[in-house]
Structure formats: structure tokens, C-alpha cells
Nucleic acid binder design. Structure first.
Length: 360
DNA sequence: AAGCTAGACAACCGCGTTCCG
DNA sequence: TCGGAACGCGGTTGTCTAGCT
């Protein structure tokens, strides 16, 4: 492993910071300001890596940091922003004065993920579990056996299989689940990634999104991210991310009169009739089709205009799966899907014994 | 009282990006 | 333009503590 030069010394101290060390950092920063962190340890008389100093300052010593626990408003904002832009903690934290990305990340990992799971919502896709299960069952046409549940993400499993887990070291637990990872990835990537496109389209119906750009997370450009943030944060009176029914959760944005009716996260039925996204486009544009293939005309998004106020909590996934796999007609698509399924079958057969004995 | 467990949060690690000579 | 250093970010791990058995 290559360490940065500032951390290369063997005598660099690690672990928790003492009050003395904090005082040295504070003294240094008050005198010299922040910046050039690699020089800080030497100048401040610390046996710490510069990176570590910066982290200590950013996450703990900065005077503008809030110490009190997260408010319900902050909590809702985090959930909304996570739904909109994913785990971009630094961006989310920028919308929460006095909070650091580390704070937000920790709060998400320890509280919010669990909370959403208990509500029956997958914290990764922000989609009701029941719908994910149904959609996932539809993909492969495979029976929903225990094995299938074993391939769902851990939070989801915890919700379905409420049973005390024997404590085990984290690494061991992680390793034990290795056999599930591929199928998890199959699911979460296919679901979450195109979902970003859905967010973009549904949250900014008037935004000229180029629908021929492959809808991966990274293609969600900065402008759109900022717009997403703006939309979410400006909805000053939103009443929250409400669980309505197992297939239906909503976000009520009451900041505009026309949005008094809660905008609703698409149900499976709604999504199947929503023409805004074509899974086919997503799959094929990347490589399989020449650009501007005539049967993949730009989508007409006029239907979105009727629900401009709907800040659709990104569903992300299952709608895409229903779209794509059910509507697939071209041979290239079916071969792509078939290849994925073949690989998955192969994996299941290879790890059959493990999958029959889930690690939880 | 001791051991175990889970929650909270601080800190570290690795990697990608940006800056600068 | 290139390469190394610095920085920033997200994921992961470590540590402490309170509650429970």
C-alpha cells in the first residue's frame, strides 16, 4: 500500500484524539487558518498525518458544527436528497448547515436505513420491498424461494426475517454473505442506476434532459443534481416521506397550492403505464445499438407535464424492470437478459449449498 | 457483577480528482 | 503534457457506552 508522504512515518499516531491534540489543531487553525494540511502536523507539533488533522478539524473541531441530534426536518431532507442523488454525502451535508458528510453518513447508516427498512422501504432503491420482490420474481420467472430472498439486500432481509442474529464480527458476517453479493449487485445496480434517470425526468419535467444519454449515476450532471437539491430544499413545507401502504409511499409537498394533494411514489401499476423511461433505451444505447436507431425515437415526456408538482421519490428500479423485461422484443435485448439470467443461474448452482443456508 | 450486544459516532483507508511545478 | 503531491469523498472499521441477560 502506498501511503501519502505525510502519513509515511512510522511514528504517526492513530486512534482517538486527545484534548491536547485538539487544542494544538485549534491553536494552529486560529493562527494560520485552514489549508496545507500536510504541513499542519509539523507546524502544530502533532504526531499525526495531515489528512487525519484535516478530518479532525472538518468533522469535529470546526466551530460551526452542530452538536445536537438531527431534527425531523433534517431527517426528511436527508432521505429526500438520498433518494434524489444517492449517497453523495458531501452534497447532502452542504444542504444541512452545521452537519458534516460524516455526520450525515453515520446517521443514515445507523438510523435512517433501519427506519426505512422497518417501514417496508428499501433504503437503496427507496422502493417498497413488496414491489421489489414482485418485480424481482418477474425478472427471472423463478420461484420466490428462500434462496431468492437470500439474494436480496441485507436490510430487506432483516425486515422479512425478523429473528435475532447471533453477534458476529463484521468481517465474518461480510464474508459469510459473499455468495449473495453478485445477485445483490445484479439487483441493486440494475435498479438503482436507471432510477437516477427517473429522478431526473420526474423531478424536472421541463428540464431538457437528453434522453439519449445513458442513464447511469455519473451521467446525472452537476446542474441536475443542484436542481434536485434546490427542488427538495425549497419545498419548505413538505410534510414528509410517508408510508401509505405496502406498495405506496408518498412525499407531500405543500409549498405550492397545486401540490396540496400528495405526490405519490409511483405504484407498480402507474409505473408500467409511465412512458417516461424506456429500459430498452437504457440497455441498448450503451453499446448494442447504433446511435439514433429509428425505432428508438426520443421519448415524448409530455405526460410528465400533468404532474409537474410531483416530486416523485425515485423509485428506481422495479418500474424499469417491469418496463424492460416485459416489453422487450428485440433479440439483442433478450440475449442480454438471457445472459444475465444464465450467469445468475450458474452462480446459484455453484453456490447452491451456501444459498440454501443464508448467513443470517 | 460480569459478559454480551447493539447503537452511536469517531477515525481510518483507498481511490478518484484536482492542483501545481 | 506529465507526474507527483494534496485534497476530498465514500465506504469501512474501531472504540466507547448503555442496556440487557
Amino acid at each position: 500500500m502506498v501511503r501519502p508522504p505525510c502519513c509515511d512515518k512510522l511514528n504517526v499516531k492513530k486512534g482517538l484524539w486527545s484534548e491536547e491534540e485538539d487544542a494544538k489543531i485549534l491553536a494552529y487553525v486560529s493562527k494560520h487558518g485552514t489549508g496545507n494540511w500536510t504541513a499542519v502536523p509539523k507546524k502544530a507539533g502533532l504526531r499525526r498525518c495531515g489528512k487525519s488533522c484535516r478530518l479532525r478539524w472538518t468533522n469535529y473541531l470546526r466551530p460551526d458544527l452542530k452538536r445536537e441530534s438531527f431534527t425531523p426536518q433534517e431527517e426528511e431532507l436527508i432521505i429526500l436528497l438520498h433518494a434524489a442523488i444517492g449517497s453523495r454525502w458531501s452534497i447532502i451535508a452542504q444542504q444541512l448547515p452545521g452537519r458534516t458528510d460524516n455526520d450525515v453518513k453515520n446517521y443514515w447508516n445507523t438510523k435512517l436505513k433501519k427506519k426505512l427498512s422497518e417501514m417496508g422501504i428499501d433504503p437503496v432503491t427507496h422502493k417498497p420491498f413488496s414491489q421489489i420482490l414482485a418485480d424481482y420474481g418477474n425478472i427471472g420467472g423463478l420461484p420466490k424461494s428462500r434462496t431468492r430472498i437470500g439474494s436480496l439486500n441485507r436490510d430487506m432481509k432483516n425486515t422479512f426475517l425478523i429473528k435475532p442474529e447471533p453477534h458476529q464480527p463484521r468481517a465474518a458476517a461480510t464474508q459469510g454473505c459473499t455468495a449473495n453479493i453478485n445477485s445483490n449487485q445484479l439487483m441493486t445496480t440494475t435498479m438503482a442506476v436507471p432510477g437516477m434517470k427517473l429522478v431526473q425526468e420526474n423531478m424536472f419535467p421541463n428540464n431538457n434532459v437528453n434522453h439519449h444519454v445513458p442513464a447511469d449515476c455519473d451521467s446525472l450532471d452537476l446542474l441536475s443534481q443542484l436542481q434536485a437539491i434546490k427542488l427538495v430544499t425549497e419545498a419548505s413545507n413538505y410534510t414528509g416521506y410517508q408510508f401509505v401502504s405496502p406498495n405506496h409511499y408518498s412525499l407531500s409537498l405543500s409549498s405550492t397550492p397545486s401540490s396540496s394533494s400528495s405526490s405519490t411514489c409511483s405504484t407498480a401499476a402507474q409505473e408500467k403505464t409511465d412512458p417516461a423511461f424506456s429500459w430498452r433505451d437504457f440497455l441498448l444505447e450503451d453499446a448494442l445499438l447504433p446511435p439514433e436507431s429509428e425505432d428508438i425515437a426520443p421519448q415524448n415526456h409530455s405526460s410528465n407535464e400533468t404532474n409537474n408538482n410531483n416530486a416523485v421519490v425515485p423509485g428506481t428500479g422495479s418500474e424499469l424492470l417491469s418496463y424492460g423485461f416485459q416489453a422487450s422484443s428485440s433479440s439483442s435485448e433478450s440475449s442480454f437478459v438471457a445472459a444475465m439470467l444464465d450467469q445468475e443461474k450458474e452462480m446459484f448452482s455453484e453456490f447452491a449449498n451456501l444459498l440454501e443456508d443464508p448467513c443470517y
